[in-house]
């Protein structure tokens, strides 16, 4: 589904790339964890596959079209959903409006948009008493679940998450990982999670470690 072809990235000095000649394949219905220490370039890799930045060398393919062909804005709008460590919700909106806004921008069509959004939020533990409350009044775990619900509602084939459990306690972490697994296995999305927590990575179907400018698939 998603392929990287000789992917490379560096900041200023080409001779010191973060990674180079990466050739990876990510399939739908599977979850992937990308592990690595700080500064190894895992978040940069995520920003490339999320369409937030352009690779310095190589290309990324979604199916039979490269991101260059699709265009980054179009790619972000229709093909990828991103879940951030800091949630990055619209702080002046309710969970419901966060979902409806994302659905409107991405053009995700669901029968009875409002009903669908409420059902999605409810399925992630955001009850009816919370769906119309301002998101700033929700706990960290609840906000992260709203962010996941937003990614689900957009119905993009690829879901990428940057340290999605970084701000959560153990219970919430387990719940969030369960949600990602459901996305992959029940909704047949390709889920790529960047994390530095081995426990989180262990729950994913595949694990990669980014080390010495190369990805190594763990057993």
């Amino acid at each position: 589904m998603l392929k990287t072809q000789n992917l490379g990235y560096w900041y200023q000095d080409k001779s010191q790339p973060l990674f180079q000649d990466l050739n990876l394949t990510f399939d739908e219905g599977q979850s992937y964890a990308i592990l690595g220490h700080s500064g190894t370039g895992k978040t940069t890799f995520l920003s490339l596959i999320a369409g937030l930045d352009k690779p310095k060398s190589g290309d990324i393919w979604l199916g039979d079209r490269s991101l260059k062909q699709i265009g980054l804005t179009n790619y972000r709008r229709h093909d990828v959903s991103i879940v951030f460590q800091a949630y990055n919700l619209f702080t002046y909106m309710s969970p419901l409006n966060n979902l409806l806004t994302a659905m409107a921008i991405t053009g995700a069509e669901h029968a009875g948009d409002k009903f669908f959004a409420r059902r999605t939020l409810n399925s992630l533990g955001i009850g009816e008493d919370l769906v119309e409350r301002n998101v700033q009044h929700l706990s960290g775990g609840q906000q992260q679940r709203v962010a996941i619900a937003r990614a689900m509602a957009c119905d993009a084939p690829l879901v990428v998450a940057d340290e999605p459990t970084g701000n959560l306690d153990e219970d919430n972490t387990q719940e969030v990982i369960d949600q990602f697994q459901q996305l992959a296995h029940q909704q047949h999305k390709c889920v790529i999670i960047v994390t530095h927590e081995p426990d989180v990575a262990a729950r994913c179907d595949h694990q990669f470690r980014l080390e010495n400018k190369q990805f190594t698939q763990l057993a």
Binding site: L52, T73, N74, Y75, R76, H78, N88, L89, I105
Partner: peptide, 13 residues
């Protein structure tokens, strides 16, 4: 800025 960033990440023009 964060709001703008989120909008851009969602593919908003």
């Amino acid at each position: 800025r964060f709001e703008i960033g989120v909008l851009l990440s969602l593919g908003e023009a």
